[in-house]
Structure formats: structure tokens, C-alpha cells
Design a protein around this nucleic acid. Structure first.
Lengths: 117, 117
DNA sequence: GTGCTGTATGACGATAGACGCATTCTGCAT
DNA sequence: ATGCAGAATGCGTCTATCGTCATACAGCAC
């Protein structure tokens, strides 16, 4: 049932699937969260380290991590009194690389059109 | 200069690049815009057709198309009194496919864990 | 040039969500 | 069991943006 709703697309996602896909993108659409993911992809970190690395408050970082964890993009593991968070999987890396490549191509095209003019 | 700011990442995007990448994801994080992109990828459409297809108001659709156009994801072309909008490139398709696949995998994993239990 | 249609934009209200302070909760260390 | 540190959550404020109605603008058709 759920499977069918999500999977109905040979090519065109169902309205329900579109909603879920867009919510996924929305997660990545916030710089704070993307920044956290970048930090965590380099290795596990506790909240204090992330506070230091980003400058955001403990509560804010905790909340963002909660969102990322519920979406399956990060996991946490106890290390003494601390929780170590780590990035899970390669999907976000892949997505960012595609977008970044595209953004660069676009800038390069613009540079070229300026040079010609 | 701009090139370097965006391109600095062998692997870790610069803060500026992260901002731009997140803004790109933010564009896709709104169901309306994603829906429009899906419609337009099947062929060029005018605003009236998009109104009919989605149920949103003319002004809203026009505004969303404006955003997508400025980001280079759609183009427009005059056809008599109408403007035909069309989706540009495959990037959004690729991104959606990656995300959709992942969402499915996640659901399937959850189904499996329920079956075992 | 004029009138009309299709589209873009102004103005407004409602809502979601970022963000930080304060507090509570959780689990470790003793 | 107790105390403490680290993390999660309550609450309030602020901002951005969705979405619509109304209006302005752009370009076609005559």
C-alpha cells in the first residue's frame, strides 16, 4: 500500500511521493543542516564540537540533529557522557555534488558569455 | 574569484558554496514548484494549463515559474499571446530519482523489520 | 493605434520554521 | 543513590514565504 504509493512512478512520482521528495529537499534547504552534514561526514562529532565548529547554540544544533536523525541522515552513539553523531550514507554527498557541479557550470557559462560580450 | 569561491571544494564545499547549494535545494523543497517541474518535464505548457493541472492561482504559478526561471530550471517562449514554459536539463530528474530511490529503500527496510518482528 | 488576453507584480494575511534562553530529561561517574 | 554534564525540549520572537485578490504590464490580434 505504502509501497505502491511511493513506487507508482515509472517516471512521474505520485502526489504523495512528490510531497515526500520535496520534504527531503526541504531538509537540505537549510544551510545550518547542510553545514552539520558536511562536518559529520568527515567523522563523528559531539554537540560541543559542532557548537564550536558552527557557532550555533546547543539547543539549535540538537534540534537540527534530531531532524536529520529522524530522516535517517545521521545516527548517534553514546561515548561516555557524550553523544557522537555521524553522517549516514552517501546520498547527500551525491546530491550536493550534482548540484555543485551544475552551479559551477552555470557560472562558467555566464563567465563565457561575458567574455564574448 | 567567484569561480574559486564555488570551486574550492575538492570535497568540502566552502561556506558560500554551501549557501548556494542549500538555496538550490530550497527551491525543490516546495511541493508546488516540484509539481510544476514534473508537469513541465512532460512537455511545454502555458500558465492556464498549469492552473488547471495544479489548482493554484495564476499569480502563484507565475511567481513560482519566475523563481524556477531565474534559477535556470525552466525557460519560456512566446506562442502567440501565450508563454510556453518548459523544463530545462535533467538535473532535477536525477536528483528526484536519487531521493525517491532512497525513500523507497527506507520504506522497504522498515517493512522488512516489521515482518521479522 | 486600440482593445483584449495572458502574465507579472503589489499588497496583505496566515503559517512554518529558524533561532536562542530557560528548563527538563537522560545517562554517566562516583 | 546522588550529582553533574551533555543533550533534548518548552516557549517566545522574528522573518521569510506561501497563497490569494487586485492591479499593472506586456505583447498579440485586428
Amino acid at each position: 500500500m505504502q509501497r505502491r504509493e511511493v513506487a507508482v512512478a515509472q517516471n512521474t512520482p505520485s502526489p504523495q511521493a512528490l510531497e515526500e521528495i520535496s520534504q527531503f529537499f526541504r531538509l537540505l534547504g537549510e544551510p545550518t543542516r547542510l553545514q552539520l552534514l558536511c562536518k559529520l561526514r568527515q567523522g563523528p562529532l559531539d554537540v560541543a564540537s559542532l557548537i564550536q565548529a558552527t557557532g550555533f547554540s546547543q539547543s539549535h544544533i540538537s534540534r537540527q540533529l534530531g531532524q536529520l536523525q529522524r530522516a535517517g541522515l545521521v545516527t548517534s552513539e553514546r561515548d561516555g557522557v557524550r553523544l557522537l553523531y555521524r553522517a549516514e550514507g552517501q546520498l547527500v554527498d551525491d546530491l550536493c555534488l550534482l548540484v555543485q557541479t551544475r552551479l559551477r557550470q552555470r557560472l562558467e557559462a555566464q563567465l563565457e558569455s561575458l567574455a564574448v560580450a
